[in-house]
């Protein structure tokens, strides 16, 4: 709390606090969880309020709700095949969980829960556990022999192929979680850095306020870019989950 000398505190925005007053403090309910609830409620509002007319010819909001439904549904069916219909609710929840985290985080004073490696890591771990369970249920133990050592590979290559396949399988949750986490953190750190630049430049003599317009312009452009990244990263997370599910069902 030293307001005299503004320094760049780009990481303070990621600090966690208990939310919802005394009750939240007693059960460690953080502001990240509050935003998860808000994101879930917004998604539900889109689906319930948007679909309320149940019209044959949909209005704007109903079109948006149907678009959201069909977008994920088509992704599941095109990536996984007919079996993808079973995983549709899972991929839908995952996509909107991540998307709402990314988009809500762009609002001022909001918290970006997808900028926490703990959250993205847990999501990626859940995806990989679900994918492995699906693979074993679909193919039995046959999955391990077939997936990590595909039929037709020369026996001599086994010492090479099997470790590579195992490592690539295990690196999936790592890349999945770090990709989302890094994208979100990078974007928000840049916001903070340029915003702090503006404050610092504004207090810099006569021409300071004039130069301070520069970082503001950059931040405006960044908001547009981050909107793209927010949607793209949610899409990437969902479609990679679909691709992993495809591998689990069809074994490559």
């Amino acid at each position: 709390m030293e307001p005299a000398e503004p320094t760049i505190d780009a990481l303070g925005q990621f600090r966690l606090f208990p939310s919802l007053g005394m009750l939240g403090r007693s059960v460690n309910f953080t502001q990240a969880n509050t935003f998860m609830v808000i994101g879930g409620l917004l998604t539900m509002a889109l689906l319930y309020y948007g679909m309320r007319p149940r019209a044959i010819v949909p209005g704007r909001l109903q079109s948006a709700a149907e678009l959201a439904y069909n977008f994920i549904y088509d992704m599941c069916v095109s990536q996984v095949g007919e079996e993808g219909k079973r995983f549709f609710p899972f991929v839908f929840t995952l996509f909107f969980f991540v998307l709402m985290g990314n988009l809500l985080g762009l609002l001022p004073y909001a918290f970006t829960y997808t900028s926490h490696i703990a959250i993205t890591g847990a999501l990626a771990l859940m995806v990989i556990v679900v994918v492995t369970i699906v693979a074993i249920r679909e193919n039995g133990t046959h999955f391990f022999t077939e997936y990590f050592f595909p039929a037709g590979t020369p026996k001599a290559l086994a010492p090479l192929i099997i470790p590579i396949e195992v490592i690539s399988y295990l690196s999936r949750p790592v890349s999945l979680s770090i990709r989302l986490f890094a994208n979100m953190v990078a974007g928000h750190v840049m916001f903070e850095v340029f915003a702090t630049f503006t404050v610092m430049l504004a207090g810099l003599g006569l021409f300071g306020p004039l130069i301070a317009v520069g970082p503001v312009v950059i931040n405006v452009a960044l908001v547009g870019f981050e909107l793209l990244v927010a949607c793209l990263q949610a899409y990437v997370f969902a479609i990679l989950t679909c691709i992993y599910l495809h591998d689990a069902v069809h074994l490559h």
Partner: peptide, 30 residues
Amino acid sequence: NPLTLAQIVWGAIIFAVLYVIFARSSLPQV
């Protein structure tokens, strides 16, 4: 910080609740 891991627990609960609501009610309605 205990909150770092606590948010995962609450996040898992919220995700599970959302999944059940979406899978049972919202998506079938659409």
